[in-house]
Amino acid sequence: MAELTYRDAVARGIAQEMARDPDVIFFGEDVAKAGGVFKATVGLYEQFGPRRVRDTPISEQAILGAAMGAAMTGLKPIAEIMFSDFIAVCFDFIANEFPKSRYMSNGQTKCPLVVRTGNGAGSRFGAQHSQSVENWCMMIPGLKVVAPSTPLDVIGLLAAAVRDPDPVIFFEHKSLYAVKGEVPDGEILDTLGTAKIVRPGKDCTILALALMVPRALEAAKRLKEQHGIDCEVIDVRSLVPLDTQTILGSVARTHRVFTVEENPRLCGWGAEIASIIADEAFYDLDGPIVRITTPHIPLPAADILEDMVLPTVDRIAETVRRSLSA
């Protein structure tokens, strides 16, 4: 057992998979000799050498295209897109190429790759380096989409993503890189498509992802202490595949649902989950499903402004309290 940061967990997860499988290669901008702009890949170049850990030019299309071509022909590439906002300049590969080649070729083409990317706000970087864009990927048939919230989940889900035969977009939250957590020794392997009940409760269900998970947990603690409200918190972890059974099971017990989403409101991931619950568990509900999201705006840079727009512990706790007492 060791205490590891989320950042170090990324490197450990990649190293675990590279040591296990010589077909795993890793490349991206500044990831090798410099260890990544977020220092999440420090030591990999030294451990695995320049054949397997490569610095690329600033060519997001070439990075993802090369990852796809390598994946089609027998390698298991992990490609890094430094900031998830940059997915916009190589979206063709994410939207049109990775997820459609198997289908269009009637099952001939494989695409087992992982795109790791730094997602989310909190660094005061402004509207083009702070977005939560997991919903951009969630909407595309053929992709898998994962967003871990703890160091342990980083390793386990990254390992699962690398071993998965489909293209996986792996969202690391930039504001979680410094967060520490207990991680057991030895190989760690988790399962895609599984949500985790991170706090059991009976009065309501709070669904959260990535940075919103610790905030939801903190809000749940406060609600219990100050108002006696017992929240169940679920870390959704995997948007595709989506573990609807865990979510619907929780709704059947608590009868109230809140989503806590960092993505801007329109077509955020919680909208789809809310629609599934409304379709399939409507009569389990004692009140409306409430989505707590970033408003539908570009993100401001200034700290006091950015702090106001992301769902905070205060906003989560207050929204839950008010809704349940209404």
């Binding site: 090369a66 089609m72 022909t73």
Partner: peptide, 19 residues
């Protein structure tokens, strides 16, 4: 999609080189 397969061909070539 115009241009997409040029980087993809690079990736396949990387496999040949790597292996």
């Amino acid at each position: 999609i115009i241009g997409a397969h040029l980087p993809i061909a690079c990736g396949a070539a990387l496999t040949a080189q790597y292996k």
